[in-house]
Amino acid sequence: MVRSTYEKRVARQLLLILSPSLLLLLAFVIYPAVYSVYLSFTNEALTGAAALNPRFVGLRNYSRLLHDAKFWNSLLVTFLFVVGSAIIGQFVLGLISAILLRRDLAFKQLFSSIILLPNAAPEVVAGFMWISMLAGGENATLSRIVMFFGMTPTDWLQTFPLTMIIVVNTWRGIATAMILLTAGLSTIPSEVYEAARMDGANPSQIFRRITLPLMMPTILLYMLISAVSTIAVFGLVYALTRGGPGGATEVISIYIYNQSFTAFQLGYGAAVAVVALVISLILGIAYVRAMKVQV
Protein backbone atom coordinates (compact mmCIF):
# COMPACT_ATOMS: atom_id res chain seq x y z
CA MET A 1 0.00 0.00 0.00
CA VAL A 2 2.85 2.34 0.92
CA ARG A 3 4.69 1.31 -2.23
CA SER A 4 1.63 1.96 -4.33
CA THR A 5 1.26 5.49 -2.96
CA TYR A 6 4.95 6.10 -3.61
CA GLU A 7 4.62 4.88 -7.19
CA LYS A 8 1.60 7.09 -7.74
CA ARG A 9 3.51 10.08 -6.40
CA VAL A 10 6.47 9.31 -8.68
CA ALA A 11 4.12 8.93 -11.63
CA ARG A 12 2.53 12.31 -10.85
CA GLN A 13 5.95 13.92 -10.53
CA LEU A 14 7.05 12.39 -13.82
CA LEU A 15 3.93 13.67 -15.51
CA LEU A 16 4.57 17.12 -14.02
CA ILE A 17 8.17 17.11 -15.21
CA LEU A 18 7.24 15.87 -18.66
CA SER A 19 4.18 18.06 -19.12
CA PRO A 20 6.04 21.11 -20.55
CA SER A 21 7.63 18.88 -23.21
CA LEU A 22 4.32 17.16 -23.85
CA LEU A 23 2.57 20.51 -24.23
CA LEU A 24 5.24 21.77 -26.62
CA LEU A 25 5.04 18.54 -28.63
CA LEU A 26 1.26 18.81 -28.74
CA ALA A 27 1.30 22.46 -29.79
CA PHE A 28 4.12 22.38 -32.32
CA VAL A 29 4.23 18.80 -33.63
CA ILE A 30 1.04 16.83 -33.01
CA TYR A 31 -1.48 19.62 -33.58
CA PRO A 32 0.08 20.86 -36.88
CA ALA A 33 0.35 17.27 -38.13
CA VAL A 34 -3.28 16.50 -37.28
CA TYR A 35 -4.36 19.86 -38.74
CA SER A 36 -2.46 19.05 -41.94
CA VAL A 37 -4.35 15.78 -42.21
CA TYR A 38 -7.61 17.71 -41.75
CA LEU A 39 -6.56 20.31 -44.36
CA SER A 40 -5.78 17.55 -46.85
CA PHE A 41 -9.50 16.67 -46.92
CA THR A 42 -10.52 20.24 -47.79
CA ASN A 43 -10.05 22.63 -50.73
CA GLU A 44 -8.57 25.28 -48.39
CA ALA A 45 -6.61 27.92 -50.32
CA LEU A 46 -4.72 31.11 -49.59
CA THR A 47 -6.67 33.12 -52.15
CA GLY A 48 -9.79 32.88 -54.29
CA ALA A 49 -13.25 31.78 -53.20
CA ALA A 50 -11.91 28.68 -51.43
CA ALA A 51 -10.02 30.93 -49.00
CA LEU A 52 -13.30 32.47 -47.90
CA ASN A 53 -15.40 29.30 -47.85
CA PRO A 54 -13.27 26.17 -47.79
CA ARG A 55 -15.20 22.95 -48.40
CA PHE A 56 -14.72 19.37 -47.28
CA VAL A 57 -13.76 17.48 -50.45
CA GLY A 58 -13.18 14.02 -49.04
CA LEU A 59 -10.46 12.11 -50.85
CA ARG A 60 -10.44 14.38 -53.92
CA ASN A 61 -6.94 15.75 -53.19
CA TYR A 62 -5.56 12.22 -52.82
CA SER A 63 -7.27 11.05 -55.97
CA ARG A 64 -5.80 14.07 -57.79
CA LEU A 65 -2.36 13.08 -56.51
CA LEU A 66 -2.60 9.71 -58.20
CA HIS A 67 -3.03 11.36 -61.59
CA ASP A 68 -0.60 14.21 -61.01
CA ALA A 69 2.52 13.55 -63.10
CA LYS A 70 4.39 16.33 -61.30
CA PHE A 71 3.76 14.66 -57.94
CA TRP A 72 5.17 11.36 -59.20
CA ASN A 73 8.08 13.24 -60.72
CA SER A 74 8.77 14.87 -57.34
CA LEU A 75 8.72 11.45 -55.65
CA LEU A 76 11.21 10.10 -58.20
CA VAL A 77 13.45 13.17 -57.84
CA THR A 78 13.29 12.84 -54.04
CA PHE A 79 14.19 9.14 -54.24
CA LEU A 80 17.21 9.85 -56.45
CA PHE A 81 18.20 12.79 -54.26
CA VAL A 82 18.05 10.71 -51.06
CA VAL A 83 19.83 7.72 -52.58
CA GLY A 84 22.45 9.88 -54.31
CA SER A 85 23.27 12.30 -51.53
CA ALA A 86 22.34 10.64 -48.23
CA ILE A 87 22.72 6.92 -48.85
CA ILE A 88 25.66 6.96 -51.26
CA GLY A 89 27.41 10.34 -51.14
CA GLN A 90 27.31 11.32 -47.48
CA PHE A 91 27.59 7.77 -46.17
CA VAL A 92 30.52 6.67 -48.32
CA LEU A 93 32.50 9.89 -47.90
CA GLY A 94 31.57 10.12 -44.21
CA LEU A 95 32.78 6.56 -43.62
CA ILE A 96 36.03 7.17 -45.51
CA SER A 97 36.59 10.36 -43.48
CA ALA A 98 35.81 8.56 -40.22
CA ILE A 99 38.24 5.71 -41.02
CA LEU A 100 40.97 8.11 -42.13
CA LEU A 101 40.58 10.24 -39.02
CA ARG A 102 41.19 7.22 -36.77
CA ARG A 103 44.69 7.00 -38.17
CA ASP A 104 47.60 9.21 -37.23
CA LEU A 105 47.46 11.51 -40.22
CA ALA A 106 49.45 14.67 -40.71
CA PHE A 107 47.12 17.71 -40.62
CA LYS A 108 44.41 15.53 -39.05
CA GLN A 109 42.83 18.50 -37.24
CA LEU A 110 42.87 20.65 -40.36
CA PHE A 111 41.22 17.82 -42.29
CA SER A 112 38.47 17.47 -39.63
CA SER A 113 37.89 21.22 -39.62
CA ILE A 114 37.52 21.30 -43.41
CA ILE A 115 34.94 18.51 -43.27
CA LEU A 116 33.01 20.27 -40.50
CA LEU A 117 33.06 23.69 -42.21
CA PRO A 118 30.02 23.14 -44.50
CA ASN A 119 27.82 22.86 -41.42
CA ALA A 120 28.89 26.32 -40.28
CA ALA A 121 27.22 28.03 -43.26
CA PRO A 122 23.43 28.42 -43.18
CA GLU A 123 21.61 26.46 -45.91
CA VAL A 124 20.64 29.44 -48.02
CA VAL A 125 24.09 31.04 -47.76
CA ALA A 126 25.65 27.75 -48.79
CA GLY A 127 23.19 27.58 -51.69
CA PHE A 128 24.11 31.02 -53.01
CA MET A 129 27.80 30.26 -52.58
CA TRP A 130 27.39 27.18 -54.75
CA ILE A 131 25.40 29.15 -57.33
CA SER A 132 28.44 31.37 -57.85
CA MET A 133 30.56 28.26 -58.32
CA LEU A 134 28.18 26.43 -60.65
CA ALA A 135 26.75 29.32 -62.67
CA GLY A 136 27.02 29.53 -66.44
CA GLY A 137 29.60 31.68 -68.18
CA GLU A 138 33.35 31.63 -68.10
CA ASN A 139 33.74 33.33 -64.73
CA ALA A 140 32.12 30.66 -62.54
CA THR A 141 34.57 28.63 -60.47
CA LEU A 142 33.75 25.18 -61.86
CA SER A 143 33.76 26.49 -65.43
CA ARG A 144 37.23 27.95 -64.87
CA ILE A 145 38.45 24.63 -63.54
CA VAL A 146 37.12 22.63 -66.51
CA MET A 147 38.45 25.25 -68.94
CA PHE A 148 41.90 24.80 -67.37
CA PHE A 149 41.70 21.19 -68.47
CA GLY A 150 40.61 22.21 -71.97
CA MET A 151 36.96 21.28 -71.50
CA THR A 152 33.93 23.35 -72.50
CA PRO A 153 32.25 25.23 -69.64
CA THR A 154 28.53 24.92 -69.12
CA ASP A 155 25.79 26.17 -66.83
CA TRP A 156 26.04 23.27 -64.41
CA LEU A 157 22.75 23.90 -62.63
CA GLN A 158 20.97 23.86 -65.97
CA THR A 159 22.79 20.98 -67.63
CA PHE A 160 23.14 18.63 -64.65
CA PRO A 161 20.69 20.05 -62.10
CA LEU A 162 19.92 16.90 -60.11
CA THR A 163 23.54 15.78 -60.02
CA MET A 164 24.58 19.21 -58.80
CA ILE A 165 22.09 19.33 -55.92
CA ILE A 166 23.19 15.82 -54.95
CA VAL A 167 26.82 16.98 -54.91
CA VAL A 168 26.00 20.07 -52.84
CA ASN A 169 23.89 18.14 -50.34
CA THR A 170 26.59 15.49 -50.07
CA TRP A 171 29.15 18.23 -49.34
CA ARG A 172 26.90 19.60 -46.64
CA GLY A 173 26.12 16.30 -44.96
CA ILE A 174 29.53 14.61 -44.79
CA ALA A 175 30.28 16.12 -41.37
CA THR A 176 27.18 14.63 -39.72
CA ALA A 177 27.91 11.25 -41.28
CA MET A 178 31.53 11.43 -40.19
CA ILE A 179 30.68 12.31 -36.57
CA LEU A 180 28.12 9.52 -36.23
CA LEU A 181 30.30 6.92 -37.93
CA THR A 182 33.37 7.96 -35.93
CA ALA A 183 31.32 7.34 -32.79
CA GLY A 184 30.38 3.93 -34.20
CA LEU A 185 33.96 3.06 -35.06
CA SER A 186 35.17 4.01 -31.58
CA THR A 187 32.87 1.37 -30.05
CA ILE A 188 34.77 -1.45 -31.79
CA PRO A 189 37.43 -2.76 -29.40
CA SER A 190 40.97 -2.58 -30.79
CA GLU A 191 41.59 -6.13 -29.51
CA VAL A 192 39.25 -7.45 -32.19
CA TYR A 193 41.37 -5.87 -34.91
CA GLU A 194 44.57 -7.14 -33.31
CA ALA A 195 43.19 -10.67 -33.18
CA ALA A 196 42.13 -10.46 -36.82
CA ARG A 197 45.55 -9.27 -37.89
CA MET A 198 47.21 -12.09 -35.92
CA ASP A 199 44.92 -14.53 -37.75
CA GLY A 200 46.22 -13.12 -41.05
CA ALA A 201 43.22 -11.08 -42.15
CA ASN A 202 43.98 -8.43 -44.76
CA PRO A 203 42.55 -4.84 -44.52
CA SER A 204 39.71 -5.64 -46.92
CA GLN A 205 38.68 -8.70 -44.89
CA ILE A 206 38.94 -6.72 -41.65
CA PHE A 207 36.68 -4.06 -43.09
CA ARG A 208 34.09 -6.48 -44.49
CA ARG A 209 34.09 -9.05 -41.67
CA ILE A 210 34.67 -6.86 -38.62
CA THR A 211 34.19 -3.14 -39.15
CA LEU A 212 31.00 -3.24 -41.22
CA PRO A 213 29.09 -5.89 -39.19
CA LEU A 214 29.98 -4.29 -35.85
CA MET A 215 29.03 -0.86 -37.12
CA MET A 216 25.73 -1.98 -38.58
CA PRO A 217 23.54 -0.50 -35.78
CA THR A 218 25.31 2.86 -36.16
CA ILE A 219 25.04 2.71 -39.95
CA LEU A 220 21.33 1.95 -39.80
CA LEU A 221 20.78 4.73 -37.28
CA TYR A 222 22.67 7.10 -39.57
CA MET A 223 20.66 5.92 -42.58
CA LEU A 224 17.41 6.59 -40.70
CA ILE A 225 18.38 10.10 -39.62
CA SER A 226 19.96 10.94 -42.95
CA ALA A 227 17.14 9.61 -45.16
CA VAL A 228 14.38 11.33 -43.19
CA SER A 229 16.25 14.64 -42.93
CA THR A 230 17.15 14.55 -46.64
CA ILE A 231 13.50 14.05 -47.58
CA ALA A 232 12.85 17.29 -45.68
CA VAL A 233 15.69 19.32 -47.27
CA PHE A 234 14.21 22.54 -48.61
CA GLY A 235 16.37 25.66 -48.22
CA LEU A 236 19.40 24.37 -50.06
CA VAL A 237 17.48 23.18 -53.13
CA TYR A 238 15.23 26.24 -53.11
CA ALA A 239 18.22 28.57 -53.09
CA LEU A 240 20.01 26.60 -55.80
CA THR A 241 17.29 25.85 -58.35
CA ARG A 242 13.84 26.49 -56.87
CA GLY A 243 12.95 23.04 -58.19
CA GLY A 244 13.83 23.82 -61.80
CA PRO A 245 14.61 23.62 -64.56
CA GLY A 246 11.32 22.09 -65.60
CA GLY A 247 10.85 20.19 -62.34
CA ALA A 248 14.21 18.42 -62.66
CA THR A 249 15.06 19.16 -59.01
CA GLU A 250 11.54 19.50 -57.63
CA VAL A 251 11.99 17.34 -54.53
CA ILE A 252 8.86 16.71 -52.50
CA SER A 253 9.50 19.55 -50.04
CA ILE A 254 9.74 22.03 -52.93
CA TYR A 255 6.64 20.51 -54.50
CA ILE A 256 4.71 20.95 -51.25
CA TYR A 257 5.88 24.57 -51.06
CA ASN A 258 4.98 25.24 -54.68
CA GLN A 259 1.50 23.79 -54.29
CA SER A 260 0.82 25.54 -50.99
CA PHE A 261 2.51 28.90 -51.49
CA THR A 262 2.93 29.42 -55.24
CA ALA A 263 -0.33 27.90 -56.43
CA PHE A 264 -1.83 28.79 -53.00
CA GLN A 265 -3.63 25.40 -52.77
CA LEU A 266 -3.22 24.63 -49.08
CA GLY A 267 -5.50 21.59 -49.14
CA TYR A 268 -3.67 19.91 -51.97
CA GLY A 269 -0.28 20.88 -50.54
CA ALA A 270 -1.33 19.33 -47.23
CA ALA A 271 -2.26 16.10 -49.01
CA VAL A 272 1.22 15.92 -50.51
CA ALA A 273 2.72 16.69 -47.09
CA VAL A 274 0.71 13.85 -45.53
CA VAL A 275 2.02 11.45 -48.17
CA ALA A 276 5.59 12.63 -47.44
CA LEU A 277 4.95 12.08 -43.73
CA VAL A 278 3.70 8.56 -44.36
CA ILE A 279 6.75 7.77 -46.50
CA SER A 280 9.05 9.06 -43.74
CA LEU A 281 7.17 7.00 -41.16
CA ILE A 282 7.45 3.85 -43.27
CA LEU A 283 11.17 4.45 -43.71
CA GLY A 284 11.56 5.04 -39.99
CA ILE A 285 9.70 1.86 -39.05
CA ALA A 286 11.69 -0.15 -41.60
CA TYR A 287 14.99 1.08 -40.20
CA VAL A 288 13.94 0.57 -36.60
CA ARG A 289 12.90 -2.99 -37.41
CA ALA A 290 16.19 -3.55 -39.21
CA MET A 291 18.06 -2.35 -36.15
CA LYS A 292 15.95 -4.71 -34.01
CA VAL A 293 15.68 -2.01 -31.41
CA GLN A 294 12.71 -1.82 -29.06
CA VAL A 295 11.25 1.68 -29.30
Binding site: I131, G136, D155, L157, Q158, L240, T241, R242, G244, P245, G246
Partner: peptide
Protein backbone atom coordinates in the same frame (compact mmCIF):
# COMPACT_ATOMS: atom_id res chain seq x y z
CA UNK B 1 15.41 34.08 -78.55
CA UNK B 2 17.84 32.98 -75.84
CA UNK B 3 16.35 30.00 -74.00
CA UNK B 4 19.05 28.64 -71.69
CA UNK B 5 19.23 31.68 -69.36
CA UNK B 6 15.45 31.62 -69.01
CA UNK B 7 15.59 28.24 -67.28
CA UNK B 8 17.82 29.56 -64.47
CA UNK B 9 16.74 31.00 -61.12
Amino acid sequence: MPTQPLLGP
